[in-house]
Design a protein around this nucleic acid. Structure first.
Lengths: 241, 241
DNA sequence: TAGATTGTTAATCGATTAACAATC
DNA sequence: TAGATTGTTAATCGATTAACAATC
C-alpha cells in the first residue's frame, strides 16, 4: 500500500453519519443477523438494498461509513464483520444504564417491556413524585422520589434519562436530569424540550405518530368516498420510513 | 373579491403537507391548548416559533397549510380557530378505532396505556396466537385468536392496525391486516414491511431510537475522555427533532 | 403613519439518487 | 476476460431558511 505513504498516521476519521442513516442501522443489523442464521457469510449491498426496499447507493454509503474493512467487488461484505462493526458503532456491546422519570401509564409500560435488554439498554430505576408509588416496585425496579434523581444518577454514573411524565412537567424533569449528568434524553412527552448544547434529545412522540396515521386515514376514507361518486384520479401515496 | 373571478369554483385545494410538517402539528396543538388555558385568544406565529424553537417561516407555512382563515398582520392567528382547524386536519375529532396484534410485553404495555384516547385513538381489541392469552382481557380489552382478524376488522369497519409481534412474524401479520381492510399500520416491529401502494406504514422503531441515543452517548463519553488527555476541540452537536 | 406580522418567492442546505470509473 | 459489485463524484430533489413586498 505505497499509495498511502503521504498520510501515514491519519487513521480513518469516523465520517459524519446523519440521524436518518443512524436510524437505518438497526434495520441492517436485524437483517444481517437473520442472514447469518441462514448461514450466509458474505452479502452484497445490492441484495440488502433490494430486500429492505432501499436505494443501493444509500446502503453502500451507510455500510461503508461503519465498516472497517471494505466490501469486495463481485462478492460483497462479510456478514460477521458487518454485524460486529455495527454493534460497536451503535454501542450495543457496552450495556447502557438508564433511569426513567414518571411511573404513570406509559412509564409502567416501558418498565415492564422486556425488549430493551437485547439492545443494551437497562432501565435501572424509576422516579416519581406520587407518594403512593414511591417505594413500590415495577417489574422488579424500584420507584424512588424525584428528589433522589441527582443523587442516584451521580452515584451510579448514569447518562441516559427517559421522560414519561405529563407534558407540563417534562421541561422541569429535563432540567433536573441534565443537572444530574444525563447526556442523552429519550423524551416521550409530547412537548419540545429546551436543552443546552451537547445534550441529545430523541423525541418519541406517540401523539405525533398517531397524527400521521390519523391524517392519512382521513384522507384515504375521504378520497374513497369521493372516488365512489366522482371520477377516480390516481394519486400516488407516499410511505414514510 | 373581484380578483378571484378567474377561478370562481376552485375551492382552496388542501396543500400537500410533508410528514415532517405533520409531525410538528401535535406540538402546535399542545402549545395552543396551553395558550388557551392561559386566556390567550390571538397569537402571532413569531411567538409560537420562538417558544417552540422553530424557524418562524416554517411555523407560518405550517399554520397557513391547515388554517381556514388567514392570520392578521400585526396581531396573528385566533387561537380557537387554529385549535379547531388542527384537530380537524389531524382527524382527532372523529375517534379512530384500531386493533392490536401481538399481546406480548410491548403489546400489553400499549393496551394498558391510557394516553391514546385523548388523541382519538381507541384500541378495540387485541389478537395473539398464544392459546394461554386468547380469551383473557388486558385493561378490559379482549384478546382473540389471530384467526379472527379479518372477521372482526370487517365487521367493526376498522382501518388502523398496530403491530407488536416479534420481527419474524411482522410481515405475515401485516399481510393479514391489509387483507382485512386495514389502511394504516403502526409498526413497532423493528423490520421493514412491504406493503402495496396506498397503505401507510408508520414505523415506531424503539431499537432505532435507542441506537441514536446510544451512539450519541458513545461519541460523547469517548470524546470527553479524549478531551481530558488531549486538547479540546469544540464540536457543535446537533439535536434532532 | 410606522412598525409588527403576514404570505410568498428565491436561495440555501442536506440528503438521496444517478452516473461512472475502479476492482476483483 | 467479462461482468457484477464496489466506492466516489456529480446531479437531483425536497425541505428549510432568507429576503421582501403586502397588510393591518
Amino acid at each position: 500500500m505505497n499509495k498511502n505513504r503521504e498520510k501515514p498516521i491519519a487513521k480513518k476519521e469516523r465520517p459524519y453519519v446523519s440521524i436518518q442513516s443512524l436510524y437505518r442501522m438497526p434495520y441492517y443489523l436485524h437483517y444481517l443477523k437473520e442472514a447469518k442464521k441462514k448461514g450466509i457469510e458474505v452479502i452484497p449491498a445490492t441484495t440488502i438494498a433490494a430486500d429492505l426496499k432501499l436505494n443501493e447507493v444509500q446502503v453502500r454509503k451507510d455500510l461503508s461509513a461503519i465498516c472497517t474493512t471494505k466490501g469486495k467487488p463481485k462478492t460483497g461484505f462479510i456478514v460477521d464483520e458487518l454485524i460486529k462493526n455495527m454493534e460497536d458503532f451503535l454501542g450495543y456491546n457496552n450495556a447502557k444504564d438508564a433511569v426513567l422519570v414518571g411511573a404513570g401509564s406509559l412509564g409502567r409500560a416501558l418498565l415492564s417491556y422486556s425488549g430493551f435488554e437485547s439492545y443494551g439498554l437497562n432501565i435501572v430505576v424509576a422516579f416519581d413524585n406520587d407518594k403512593e408509588k414511591i417505594g413500590t416496585k415495577i417489574n422488579g425496579k424500584e420507584v424512588l422520589s424525584v428528589a433522589e434523581i441527582e443523587n442516584v444518577c451521580r452515584r451510579l454514573n448514569i447518562h441516559i434519562g427517559i421522560i414519561t411524565v405529563p407534558a407540563q412537567h417534562a421541561q422541569e424533569v429535563c432540567n433536573k436530569l441534565i443537572a444530574s449528568g444525563i447526556l442523552a434524553i429519550w423524551n416521550f412527552a409530547p412537548v419540545h424540550l429546551s436543552t443546552p448544547e451537547g445534550i441529545l434529545v430523541r423525541n418519541e412522540n406517540m401523539a405525533a405518530s398517531l397524527a400521521i396515521l390519523s391524517h392519512h386515514l382521513q384522507e384515504k376514507l375521504c378520497n374513497s368516498k369521493k372516488d365512489l361518486s366522482n371520477n377516480r384520479k390516481d394519486r400516488k401515496d407516499r410511505k414514510d420510513t
